[in-house]
Amino acid sequence: MLLQVLHIAQAALAAYGGQQSFHAIQNLLKYEEATQKLAKYSNEADRQLQKTRATQAAGAIALIMSLVASVLLAFRGHSYGFLVRTLASPFMAGCLFLARQYVQDYWGGGKRVPLPKMGSYNDAQKQTEDLAQVLERLMFSWCATSVLCLLAGY
């Protein structure tokens, strides 16, 4: 029962992170056309555009994976084998760790300075920082469910 509640909480946190990710991507898309034009003339601008897209995608994919896994384990976990139930949590913790690290490495983990007259971009930057925090909290929650699975023998 406790494990089921934790998985439901993980699903809710992943949904919240998905909202942050969605808004960040929407704000970044406002600058997409201008950035693509600039990328035609600058290799660095092209690299930054590709990295921005890749980090946003990595965060979104990790959230979707966490949401799906937590919902499946919360409502159908008893029907999966012992091995799946035992390995799902550490696997998800590892995936979330890698995604969070990838996002933070590019976005600076709160160390980027807001740009003048770039309100939506600055909003996207803040939402991406929030996304990284959600990924971290999810990672720790999957670590907790890993421990609970091992101790309780689920």
Rank of each mutant, 00 (worst) to 15 (best):
G109D: 04
A99S: 12
I25R: 05
V134F: 07
Q104A: 13
D130K: 15
K117R: 12
W142H: 03
D123R: 12
V134Y: 03
R47Q: 15
A144G: 00
G108A: 09
Q36I: 15
D46Y: 11
Q125P: 00
A58F: 09
E129F: 08
M1C: 10
Q125A: 02
A15G: 04
F22A: 12
Q133Y: 14
R100E: 06
A45K: 05
L115C: 00
G110R: 11
P116C: 04
A144F: 10
G59W: 03
A74V: 11
A34R: 06
E33H: 10
A14Y: 01
S89N: 07
Q10I: 07
S89E: 02
T86H: 01
L115H: 03
Q56S: 14
G77W: 01
L87Q: 10
R85E: 04
A88W: 03
C149S: 14
L148W: 14
A124G: 11
L38F: 05
A45R: 04
L49G: 05
K40C: 09
F82A: 15
A39N: 10
L73G: 00
R112M: 13
L73R: 02
D46P: 00
A152M: 15
V103G: 01
V5T: 15
D123L: 11
K126C: 01
T52C: 06
V68H: 00
A34E: 10
S79M: 05
A14V: 06
Q4W: 11
E136M: 13
S70A: 15
C149N: 09
L72D: 06
S70W: 02
F75D: 02
G77F: 01
Q19V: 10
H7S: 07
E44Y: 09
I8M: 09
P114L: 04
A152E: 14
L87P: 05
L28V: 14
G109Q: 02
L63R: 01
R100K: 12
K51Y: 09
G17D: 04
L135P: 08
D105G: 09
G18L: 11
F140I: 14
T35Y: 02
T86M: 08
L63W: 00
C95Y: 06
Q20N: 03
Q101P: 00
Q133W: 13
N43S: 12
R137H: 12
P114C: 06
L2V: 13
G94I: 13
A15Y: 02
T145L: 09
V113T: 15
C143T: 07
G59H: 04
A93N: 04
P90H: 05
A152F: 15
S79G: 00
A93P: 08
G18I: 12
L96M: 07
L151C: 08
L115D: 09
Y154E: 10
V71M: 06
L96R: 03
R85I: 02
L2N: 05
A99V: 07
Q101N: 14
F22H: 05
K111A: 15
L49P: 06
R85K: 13
R137K: 13
F91L: 14
S89L: 01
A99H: 05
A62M: 08
L72F: 07
G108F: 08
F75Y: 13
R76E: 11
C95D: 00
H7K: 07
N27V: 02
L148G: 01
Q36H: 10
I64F: 07
W142L: 01
M139D: 05
N122Y: 08
G94F: 09
G18D: 08
G110V: 14
L2Y: 10
L131F: 08
D105N: 14
Q127G: 00
Q20S: 03
A45H: 04
T86G: 00
G59D: 05
D123H: 08
S21A: 15
